[in-house]
Computed example of a mutant assay.
Amino acid sequence: MTDTALRIAYSPCPNDTFVFHAWAHGLVPGAPALDVTFADIDVTNGMAERGELDVLKVSYAVLPWVLDEYALLPCGGALGRGCGPLVLAREPGVSLTGRTVAVPSDRSTAYLLFRLWAATAVPGGVGDVVVMPFHEIMPAVRDGKVDAGLVIHEARFTYQRYGLHRLADMGEHWESTTGLPIPLGAIIAKRSLGAPTLRRLADAARASVRHAWADPEASRSYVLAHAQEMSPTVADQHIALYVNDFTEDLGEEGRTAARTLLTHAANGGLVPPVPPAALAFP
């Protein structure tokens, strides 16, 4: 491996900046240097599909299109329980049949979970689906630009401020039907880097997570500098929800969750089939 910094893209959300702070700031001994790009998930998903950058935080839902070129790292991502995307509207209990829904990415795990849920919960199906940056969705619902919104991240803590109502929790639906954690965001790296480098990257990501847990104050200014209009309290809630044992290591349960999501989606004709071996770490 050369001394050239690896090009990485992850979101400015607190969970990502918390996880990658130590690595990005040279606090992980022996870890390769990083050239960081901040981008929302819709952008990083597109980067992965075009084969841009060396390491990316992406949606699990985009993996069927990128696993030929990228390997799934076993750490650094976002899985969990009680942290699923929410469907919000201005009025409680409204039907989404034929309605316009804003989503954060048409290749996001949130949207994939939404499609799996809507297949049985929305007779006749929704109407138009509009992709917009996740932080624009709640204002768009509040202002009547769309009928409903599929939201992620800290929106689960803040949607009441916009006068919105929760119609459904995609995580509750997923967990009740599978009993598994929700696979949301994955860390991937180019297979062309080679197996030894991929293992080195996984070690660096894991060490960065552990450093963040051991000294959470070290990353606070980095987290808050990049958080989008977010209070320190909400940032802490965000980190507590999305950074957990699965971030340190997927483990067999995490891999089972990923395989189950992609298998369900493929069986429904929503994504191409993914061979089980494609999710294996070199």
Score class of each variant (00 low, 15 high):
238 H>M: 14
275 P>R: 11
91 E>T: 08
15 N>I: 02
183 P>R: 11
74 P>K: 06
71 A>Q: 15
204 A>W: 02
68 D>F: 09
237 Q>R: 15
202 A>C: 11
96 L>Y: 04
256 T>E: 13
92 P>G: 07
259 R>K: 10
46 G>Y: 05
77 G>M: 01
163 G>E: 03
127 G>S: 11
107 R>E: 01
213 W>S: 10
269 G>K: 14
91 E>M: 01
272 P>F: 15
99 R>N: 14
184 L>S: 06
45 N>Y: 03
196 P>C: 07
34 L>K: 01
1 M>E: 00
119 A>I: 04
270 L>D: 10
32 P>N: 13
178 T>W: 05
155 A>E: 06
272 P>E: 10
228 Q>S: 12
205 A>P: 00
97 T>F: 10
208 S>A: 04
218 A>K: 11
108 S>P: 11
193 L>N: 07
124 G>P: 08
186 A>P: 05
279 L>A: 03
116 L>M: 00
140 A>F: 00
150 L>C: 11
48 A>E: 13
32 P>I: 06
255 R>K: 14
37 T>C: 05
97 T>N: 14
160 Q>S: 09
220 R>D: 09
150 L>W: 05
177 T>S: 08
37 T>P: 01
69 E>T: 15
3 D>G: 09
75 C>R: 12
208 S>D: 07
236 D>A: 15
41 I>V: 15
120 T>P: 00
152 I>V: 14
46 G>V: 07
69 E>A: 13
182 I>V: 15
132 M>I: 07
280 A>D: 15
255 R>S: 03
151 V>A: 12
23 W>P: 01
269 G>S: 14
192 S>I: 01
108 S>D: 11
